[in-house]
Nucleic acid binder design. Structure first.
Lengths: 357, 357
DNA sequence: CTGAAAGCGCTAACAA
DNA sequence: TTGTTAGCGCTTTCAG
């Protein structure tokens, strides 16, 4: 196996097989060490933030490294430091445009910190708990869970995990897990008050997944706001956080003529379905007959066909808080669960009659 | 900082700090070996497909492994086999819903084959070539490039790469790279013929990115089809593969009253922009005044607000072909570049007047 | 501050 | 078939 293996002896146009093939030997820290006339440890130190190494030695190593185009192998490094430089992302709702956006944001944010995204996108139905051990096998530096299907089983697995876990855009009441969310309650409350103030009297709510904390908190906040305004509890239907679900939910809400005059929808992708059902199927005018308010502010919300009034989530901030939490937990030996809550921002567009700002 | 920081000295329910913390020692192949009364190599062989090991020894190892909840560390394994079990995915257009769908599909397909997705989602403007070496540092088993910004520089980097590279949904004429695409030319040709057959006489084309192979081939195919039908070259505008670009493109095409009677749009997300501009801004009827045909069949294409007639790409098939190509190249020592082309399928909806199927 | 030596967890020759 | 011995590429005590 010393000779370049498995190649034509006289392959044309490829003078040195071991060079042209895919078997090119990688340059290692030892190569760099030799070139710089130092030990391998010196190379290691040069590439380790805050290691004890003199300016000049470091400079010499770096020069050699640059010449050889060397960068440390994160996997080999991870074997010993137990940090691979990868962060696992658990997302199972990629069909909701909010998540691809988040994904992109995580990508940038982690890249900036010299880390990589390992994506776990289990098909619907695959149990999430199974995914955690999978991620752990890769010695990930942290795990971000952005799935509505966070159960206490997952929480338990997460607490035992050898890597910090942070929930993104959801939380678990007593799970003992760190989480980053928007202030769903306050945001929904505001929507309710504004809707009431604008004169709506027959409000309705379209929930997402019944077990999702986001949906629950938005519903509670909405109900609270209505209550403050002297209105009763809204009618409510579930839409499963999908476009089709929202569409069906709107039909359901309007069945039997009890048409609501305002619908607050737990997320935008459902809200688009609601608007389509209202207009296309029921011939209603939005916002003339019914006001619709969504949540998230996905790109499609601003398209002229929808022009959706919605509560924007501070995506970038949520992402960077999440990553920060991960790093904090990685530092501390016995981190405590922290919940970060960021304010939402109402984006006024044309799908709802609201009092002037 | 030696003492467990920031926690109650007498925290209840956590008797042995070193047990409750995140420092739990991982179980290794040696633990399993000891338990099964065998050597570490035996454990390795038990977990290696097709290794020389007796039925009973394997059974014994597996039993011990199960008891200890052991699974081999893919990173350590990768250090020596040079296969990490990870496949890098290069995607920079996550805002086009086609790609999140593809991402999900890659996730499932790779998961089925025991591999993981490492996602590289460079922000717009970040050079793609830089990403390849990044991926290679992680000893990925392959790299899927699904970016419209494939340049010959990238191709060169890819050819030198220590891992197979396959282009997804794009190709490079003379780049020597394997690729999987839909038959863009034939699909576009068909659209042109049908549009002509239905009596359209002022066709237009909205291109995506000018350098993207998909856009180029769709444009050529469209022109060819029109030509066959005795029509001249279509007017054309570029939309940069974004919703906003499509919107602007439609306005541009209709400026000065030369309104086309049919617009073929290089992808769906632009087509939605085209439809919105036509209807909302120009007050035109789709398909009454203008027929619109898209490409991809993203979920939003079927929403009632758009009801977009479009050429569907065989997403799942494209994904599994891509992964297969990767594996093939991984096997062979000197693989040759292969291009797989799959047929598209026309999805007839309400945005275009077409002859009956 | 620097180098030598040991070893992260695993697989791949090599003998037995 | 199985165990023993190296060693993947790197970091980290430990001496100096």
């Amino acid at each position: 196996m010393e000779q370049a293996s498995g190649d034509d002896p006289a392959e044309p146009g490829r003078s040195r097989p071991s060079e042209g093939g895919r078997r090119a030997r990688r340059v290692t820290s030892i190569d760099v060490a030799r070139r710089a006339g130092v030990s391998a440890s010196a190379v290691s130190r040069a590439f380790t933030e805050g290691a004890y190494i003199s300016r000049e030695l470091k400079a010499r190593v770096m020069a050699a490294a640059r010449e050889l185009d060397y960068e440390p192998n994160p996997l080999a490094r991870g074997l010993i430091t137990r940090r691979s430089g990868m962060v696992a992302l658990l997302m199972d709702e990629l069909s909701n445009p909010f998540y691809p956006e988040a994904l992109q944001a995580f990508g940038s944010e982690l890249h900036r910190r010299g880390k990589r995204v390992m994506l776990f996108a289990p098909a619907p139905g695959e149990p999430l708990e199974d995914v955690l051990p999978q991620a752990l096998r890769y010695s990930v530096d942290g795990i971000v869970v952005a799935s509505a299907h966070v159960t206490s089983a997952l929480a338990e697995a997460a607490r035992k995990a050898a890597a910090p876990v942070v929930l993104f855009n959801r939380m678990l009441e007593h799970g003992g897990l760190s989480a980053v969310t928007c202030d769903n309650h306050a945001a929904a409350e505001l929507v309710a008050r504004l809707l009431a103030e604008a004169g709506h009297r027959r409000p309705a709510f379209v929930a997402g997944l019944e077990t999702a904390s986001t949906s629950i908190h938005r519903e509670r906040g909405f109900a609270a706001g209505l209550h403050q305004a002297g209105l009763g509890a809204p009618r409510r239907v579930s839409g499963g956080y999908t476009y089709q679900g929202g569409y069906a939910a709107a039909l359901e809400l309007c069945r039997g003529g009890e048409t609501p005059d305002a619908i607050f929808v737990a997320n935008d992708i459902m809200a688009l379905g609601v608007v389509d059902a209202l207009r296309r199927e029921l011939g209603l005018d939005v916002p003339g007959d019914v006001s619709v308010v969504g949540f998230d502010d996905i790109p499609a919300a601003s398209w002229p066909s929808y022009d959706l009034t919605t509560m924007r989530q501070p995506l970038r901030a949520m992402v960077s808080e999440t990553v920060q939490l991960l790093e904090d937990q990685l530092e501390s030996a016995y981190p405590k669960a922290t919940t970060v809550t960021l304010p939402g921002r109402l984006i006024r567009r044309g799908s709802a009659r609201l009092p002037p700002a």
